[in-house]
Nucleic acid binder design. Structure first.
Length: 499
RNA sequence: GGUCUCUUGGCCGAGUGGCUUAGGCACUGGUCUGCAAAACCAGUUACAGCGGUUCGAAUCCGCUAGAGACCUCCA
């Protein structure tokens, strides 16, 4: 519990445009809502970045001892498409093309999404609600807005009245820095526009066209809920009318999150969210990954290496580490070269991790300087994380620790640290890597049999060296490296690592 | 067209008024080794351009150039 007290987190609040002291609604508890995927196709790496960013955020809160309720929705209905078949549900379109039930599509890609998230070692949310599972609540929220005069019905559809909302003290545009008057004049001509009082008004309920397969009954028409409603409904239902953190990708800031604020405020007379967090985009070839433009990379292509952009296959853990090396609010460009560099650094980090996990601590005479240095490094890790989850800076500190760990290991001098300092080092270093960053060593290739086999070869090589039979000892070393096993000669004997 | 953001060394990527040598990768030298690798130590390369504010600016302001995001479904 004291860890919470010792670590005051500052969060960059998109709503205010600055870092703010994090004070939860309920002491030692965090309620966080993250906009989940629209399940009409495979999630790509760009989608993954956002979810992994917030996975790190949730993990850090938990690491400090907060009780976290993490809600991340599945959007399985309601998003409109803006090409030839305007007004049609994305999911419905795909369903017809593939001659499948809409829910079959939803099921397939939900499963895919879960598999991908698992492979990245992302923690599952506490609640993963679906839009279709909350239609009653959505209809109720529309009714509330209508009752308050902040929404109006038009031709079977219901729209949110932004102008009225502004007149009653609303601040539509505050999150995304937009001027409502400009939006009123600058909006494009979209289908259904004539039903609206003003171009900025957005749909709460849409009457379904005959081609629209996903449809439900409502007091106004057979149709489907508006694009922004589900998050408002599910966020407040599970986290309260005013909750701590709402996260999502930068691209959702406008209009999605702007509308969410308006809906929430209209329904409950309070700002629904205290801290808005927006993760930045993962780019490919300098441009944002996007389903609609096809500029994407799928996780499975990464693991198999089957993409012209990739020189080789990469593991999920390396990709995760790569992403953590950049701050979540910065654009990150994906490239094979950058990933290769990360992979090498990651291995170095994990080697030190293994050393620390296995080392036997025996106190010797105290080295005050080193003792203080380690304590400072540990404190710095927390300080960097507390500063708007600055993972790249935290990682820089971890690498400083790597140098220390390696030196201590080589000189067998962990004992020069106080026992409490050693424990702190282990807890901080290993805790940040595995608990907060969710990084796990790739031990896929190693097991007991392998370990014994390689140990046998190490012994044989040692004997060959003793007899100065370097041809044999080098052959063992070189052939092992060709297989992917690297021998490491140290003062205390030879160890190995598996590629 | 409107709104906004970014431009850091060979590459990735932090930083934000005066020592951060950020860190990683790569490279160079050294220690270790039978030779290597690994590890450690040391070192090199920088703040898009121009002008301004300031005792001092990569960091603040302005202009120019380039890139990107949002304005429409999108993490």
């Amino acid at each position: 519990m004291s860890k919470i007290k010792d670590n005051q987190i500052y969060i960059y609040n998109s709503l205010k445009g600055e870092k703010e002291k994090f004070v939860p609604v309920s002491k030692n508890h965090v309620g966080i809502y993250v906009c989940g995927p629209t399940v009409y196709s495979n999630v790509h790496l760009g989608n993954c970045r956002t979810f992994l960013s917030f996975d790190m955020v949730v993990r850090y809160f938990k690491f400090l001892g907060y009780k976290v309720r993490y809600v991340r929705n599945i959007t399985d209905a309601g998003h409109l498409e803006n090409d030839a078949e305007v007004g049609e549900d994305k999911i419905a379109k795909k369903a017809r093309l593939e001659q499948l039930e809409p829910m079959e599509i939803v099921q397939r890609y939900t499963v895919d999404f879960h598999n991908v998230m698992n492979s990245f070692n992302a923690l599952p949310p506490s609640i993963e609600p679906t839009a279709t599972g909350h239609l009653i609540e959505q209809i109720e929220m529309i009714q509330e807005s209508l009752a308050k005069g902040l929404a109006y019905e038009s031709n079977g559809s219901v729209y949110f009245d932004v102008k009225k909302y502004m007149e009653e003290g609303g601040d539509y545009g505050a999150l995304s820095g937009r001027d409502v008057d400009e939006l009123m004049s600058g909006s494009r001509d979209l289908e259904g526009q004539e039903e609206k009082k003003n171009p900025t008004d957005f749909a709460l309920w849409k009457k379904a066209s005959p081609a629209h397969i996903m449809r439900w009954n409502s007091p106004w028409s057979v149709g489907f809920p508006g694009w922004h409603l589900e998050c408002s409904v599910m966020g407040t239902k599970y986290l309260g009318k005013q909750f701590d953190i709402h996260g999502g990708g930068m691209d959702l800031k406008f209009p999605h999150h702007e509308c969410e604020i308006a809906q929430g405020k209209a329904a409950n007379n309070v700002d629904p969210v205290n801290y808005w967090m927006h993760g930045n985009m993962l780019t490919l070839n300098g441009k944002r990954m996007s389903k609609s433009t096809g500029n994407t990379l799928l996780p499975e292509e990464l693991f198999s290496g089957k993409n012209t952009l990739l020189e080789k296959a990469f593991s999920t853990t390396v990709v995760r580490f790569f992403m953590l090396q950049a701050h979540y609010r910065s654009v990150l460009d994906f490239s094979s070269e950058a990933l290769t560099a990360s992979e090498k650094g990651f291995k170095k980090l994990m080697t030190a991790f293994d050393i620390l996990e296995k080392v036997d601590y025996k106190p010797t005479s105290l080295n005050k300087e080193e003792n203080v240095l380690i304590k400072d490094l540990c404190a710095a890790c927390y300080a960097e994380m507390n500063d708007d989850f600055n993972t790249p800076k935290t990682i820089a500190k971890l690498f400083d620790m790597v140098a220390k760990i390696n030196t201590y290991n080589e000189k067998q001098s962990f004992g020069q640290l106080e026992e409490s300092t050693f424990k702190l080092l282990k807890e901080t270093f290993c805790g940040m890597i595995s608990d907060v960053f969710g990084l796990v060593a790739d031990n896929s290739g190693s097991n007991d049999t392998l370990d014994k086999s390689i140990q046998l070869l190490i012994d044989m090589r040692a004997n060959a060296k003793k007899e100065r039979n370097f041809a044999l000892s080098d052959e063992i070393r070189d052939k092992l490296i060709a297989i992917g096993v690297q021998l490491k000669d140290g003062k205390e004997g030879t160890t190995y690592s598996v590629e």
